[in-house]
Simulated scan of single mutants.
Amino acid sequence: MEHEQHQEIFQASIFTVAEARAAGLTGYRLRHGRLTTPTRGIRIWDGVTPPWFETLRAYSGLDGEHYLSHTTAAQVWGIWLPIWLTSESPIHITGRKGATAARRRPDVVGHRAALDPRDVVEVDGMRLTTPARTWLDLAPLLRDPFDLVAAGDALLQRADGPPRPEGVLGTNPLSTLREIDAVLGRRPAVKGIRTAREARGMLRAGVDSAPESRMRSVILAAGLPDPVVNQEVQLPDGRVKRPDLHYLQWRIALQYEGEGHADRVQLNKDIHRDDAFAANDWITVRAGHYLYTAAGERDFLGRLRRAIAQQSRRFG
């Protein structure tokens, strides 16, 4: 058995000294010439680049009460982040205030904070903050408040929606609005709490993607009515469609056309979808990547307001 444990440790590309000692390895063997020490307490085979998740498990397993957090935890959970925050380095680790965690290490950003037991979890060999707590920790880091809404919506995606990113932890939905509210209540004075509370009012369950969140955030920020999110609509001719957003009273469907919609099969589906709406006196208002610019927002809102005015005259 001991030999098998030795073999398992030495087959791993990265492991902690504590794991090695628990498996019965001596200090002499831990000074093997092919083992390198990226940071105290961890060993890596020379010339090997460990997979990121294995690296996270090793750092998470270091002695002390600390947890993967912030953008690192967000990527582990598959929470949407803007591209400029999706780097694997540095690793964010939060230690409990008063504990000997979150120490300074190469390629690590250490944080100290109050950690309620309800805000941390151990999954798949990793200790990390819960999705709801992770979202709150993102509030000071996201420059655009609409991005915080998109990250929050990612916690609330429907179970039967698009597949999650490959390799991430958890299943949809990752959290609930009640759990998010509970985390906000436990952290009333934390940095970014005001931004998080404002974003919380714009979160909605069932959003399929960050661009859809962006579209809805632009609408709400402009003072327009809250559209329905990703619900099926039965048209008068019996056909059933699921627009990204819609206003049933005005028969307006709102669609975000991302890069995937340029695919021939998807393009044909989009054409048939829009034809079905048009045949039943609906108007489709589309948005694209330009929605991430001020000029794009104005253009989209102008078209939406004209559609509302036109359909209001028709249907009241």
Rank of each mutant, 00 (worst) to 15 (best):
R303H: 13
A199F: 01
P163L: 05
I79W: 03
M202L: 14
Y59G: 06
G238T: 09
L245T: 06
D270N: 13
R305V: 12
L224P: 04
E88A: 13
G95C: 10
G27F: 07
V229H: 06
I271W: 12
I44T: 00
A113V: 00
V48R: 15
A12I: 00
E19T: 02
A221I: 05
T71W: 03
T284V: 15
F53S: 11
A199G: 01
V121E: 10
E54A: 08
S69W: 00
G223H: 08
P90L: 01
V149M: 09
T129E: 10
D107C: 10
A101I: 02
V183K: 06
F53P: 07
E122H: 09
D208W: 14
G170M: 09
A114I: 12
V207T: 15
Q157H: 12
I42M: 10
I180V: 15
Q5V: 02
P243C: 11
L254I: 14
Y292N: 13
R34H: 14
I252D: 00
V149Y: 09
L128H: 11
A210C: 10
H6K: 08
K269N: 12
E297K: 07
Q249S: 12
A73P: 02
P236R: 09
Q234F: 02
H32Q: 12
Q7T: 11
E232T: 14
S209Y: 04
M202D: 09
T134Y: 07
G288Y: 08
D275T: 10
V149R: 05
H32P: 00
A114Q: 11
Q249H: 11
A253W: 06
L68K: 07
